[in-house]
């Protein structure tokens, strides 16, 4: 019931938007679709599917177990056949975010989680230490309250902590800052009262924004 209401609302919003935007351009973005938008130095990615849930088994919800690879330099997804190359910078599956280095890939990557706002981080602090992936430990720390997210068992909801920036050294050794915006489809966290199936099947859709420094310096 709830879902269909949301659906109708979303459709209404779409039609409304469509009417409004028709004269300007014909691009109508479904808020639930994968989308990359560039605005100045900031690139915003919406709904990057990261091993989304296929079903619920005895051990809980499961996906296909495949990572989604992304290149910060080209602003695009990279085919998983390129996983052993330096073409990608970040790989997403569930709450795990890998960088292209160490046990994860052949690249020159590195990362750490910075506390502060995206805008305030204008240059990578000199005393920063970039970590690399050494499975099962990752440069972008996993676990509730440790890296970029909080998970609440009783409400079964995962929220990206505001004021956390992933500082990334890309596969090719350039620098980028990434802010995770949301972990759920449509860039919207479900209500705590939403059904478990909404919370499960709408999860693992990353929305994030980033700034990539093409000249290789640590200033954004």
């Amino acid at each position: 019931m709830k879902k269909s209401t949301i659906g109708i609302l979303a459709m209404a919003a779409l039609i409304f938007n469509a009417c409004k935007n028709d004269e300007v351009n014909n691009v109508v973005v479904n808020p639930n679709d994968f989308n990359v938008a560039v605005s100045g130095k900031i690139v915003t990615v919406k709904n990057l599917a990261a091993d989304t849930i296929l079903g619920v088994g005895a051990m809980g919800p499961y996906g296909a177990g495949k990572y989604t690879f992304f290149s910060l330099g080209t602003n695009s997804k990279i085919a998983s056949t390129d996983s052993a190359t330096s073409n990608w910078d970040l790989a997403f599956a569930g709450t795990t975010i890998r960088i292209n280095a160490g046990t994860s890939g052949p690249g020159n990557g590195g990362a750490f989680v910075y506390t502060g706002t995206f805008d305030a981080l204008t240059t990578v602090p000199i005393d920063s230490t970039f970590k690399i992936d050494q499975a099962p430990t990752y440069a972008i720390t996993k676990g509730s309250g440790k890296g970029w997210y909080n998970y609440d068992g009783p409400t079964n909801l995962l929220t990206a902590i505001p004021g956390r920036v992933l500082v990334i050294r890309t596969a090719s050794g350039k620098y980028a800052k990434v802010e995770i915006l949301n972990y759920y489809r449509g860039n919207t966290t479900p209500l705590s009262t939403a059904s478990d199936s909404i919370k499960i099947y709408d999860s693992r859709y990353y929305s994030f924004r980033y700034t990539y420094q093409t000249d290789g310096t640590t200033t954004f």
């Binding site: 997210y149 909080n150 929220t159 902590i161 505001p162 004021g163 966290t189 209500l191 705590s192």
Partner: peptide, 8 residues
């Protein structure tokens, strides 16, 4: 009732 933005 609930923290939506993850700041705890």
């Amino acid at each position: 009732v609930g923290d939506r933005d993850g700041n705890g």
